[in-house]
Design a protein around this nucleic acid. Structure first.
Lengths: 220, 220
DNA sequence: GGCGTTAACTGAACATTGATAAGTTATCGG
DNA sequence: CCGATAACTTATCAATGTTCAGTTAACGCC
């Protein structure tokens, strides 16, 4: 019907088109993980949705964990892009930090499932939980370093803030940990317990940012 | 050696002593969950450690999930006790809030798996994820209501603080949400990413509490 | 056109998992 | 001693992640 591609035996890829299949798998796996969680998503079901046999999946990913890692990196990419945007458009270090927080919260709340996957390690076995927090010096093309990169940016922003003359109550790393964890806690909880009668979202996010920015600056 | 209990065929319980076995299972399961995590702990291994067959475990717990839930409730009792202790021994409302935060963080860091299970809903099927956030009016003898009870106490502490004359920057519920989420984020992250090079634990916890207490008080 | 190489894929199988069914043992009141 | 039944076991199930050994078909080359 469609016309292109000569009739192939039910979706078999031509030579050299493996990466296409790989992305099909990623796409299907993402959908299924988000729908049913990591544990309930089986290799067979992913393969089914793609239209291949289960072992074929192992041609593209070492194991289920590697699949998940690849997905995490993909998601982190989006967040890192958003942060790069801040670096380009905002000059004031304090504003950068605040925008970082807003971008982070926004990212989490608009991609709740991915956030769960990446930052909460929900429904993922212990073995891959440490994803995203390898040493910040790791090769960024390697899977699983997204989280560290994001954190590194925040530390950079805070270091700028300090060298620009603003006094901080803690070292930049500690400030970064505190600020991040405050926002992270809020986002994580709002995602995990949506049925809880939360106060207004904007109020909470702005409140959390206010509190933390005030809290880390020596002379507010 | 110990001497009591007549020689039994390798640990079989006398009639009516089932609850003993139940507690043995809970104990073994707790150890194993803490050592290896929820997923990696198999029913068979728990049964092995207790010295019974795997199916025997199902005489005492409906399934693996029920076992974990029972453990959660048991553990939560300790947190609620600790909070009750604060109510008894500390009068000053501000101190109460601070102690609450300390107790909460301490609880999370010393019971990471229970914390993950109840407050993060990690590694468990959706069905039990919402545990801990049922309506606060639920029967506390039912499994899985710990979280809501704990939050209620914090709101009470903050309300006391307000009625005692201290001005707050936000309503007590919002303050409670902000304070809780700050600490929660920190605890959650330290649990989920233990290999991250965190700043000093005490420093972070105290820092987070300082920031939030300063942040919610109108005139510090 | 035919041929060999090999990327892309499949079917059968394995070990391990949570869980159930059906049967067995031993305790204890009468 | 006996019958009821609490406490437990063996055998087994279906589902899972993963591997092995093979099969199919696309493509470069003669």
């Amino acid at each position: 019907m469609t016309g292109f591609a000569t009739v192939l035996p039910a979706g078999r890829k031509r030579r050299g088109e493996g990466h296409t299949r790989r992305e099909e798998i990623l796409h299907a796996a993402k959908d299924l993980f988000l729908e049913q969680g990591y544990d309930s998503t089986t290799i067979r079901r992913i393969a089914d949705r793609v239209g291949i046999s289960a072992p074929a999946l192992y041609l593209y990913f070492k194991d289920k964990e590697a699949l998940m890692l690849a997905l995490c990196d993909q998601t982190f990419g989006h967040l890192i892009e958003a942060i790069g945007e801040i670096e380009k458009t905002i000059a004031d270090p304090l504003q950068r930090v605040r925008r970082f927080g807003e971008a982070y919260a926004h990212f989490g709340l608009t991609h709740p499932d991915e956030y769960r996957l990446v930052f909460l390690g929900a429904n993922i076995p212990e073995s891959i939980r440490k994803v995203g927090h390898r040493a910040p010096t790791d090769d960024p093309t390697q899977p699983g370093v997204g989280g560290a990169l994001v954190f590194k940016r925040l530390v950079e922003f805070l270091s700028e803030l300090e060298t620009s003359g603003t006094k901080l109550n803690y070292p930049p790393d500690t400030c970064a940990e505190l600020c991040w964890m405050g926002i992270h806690g809020l986002v994580a909880a709002m995602i995990m317990k949506p049925e809880f009668p939360w106060s207004d979202r904007e109020l909470l996010i702005n409140g959390m940012l206010d509190i933390h920015l005030k809290g880390i600056l020596r002379n507010p």
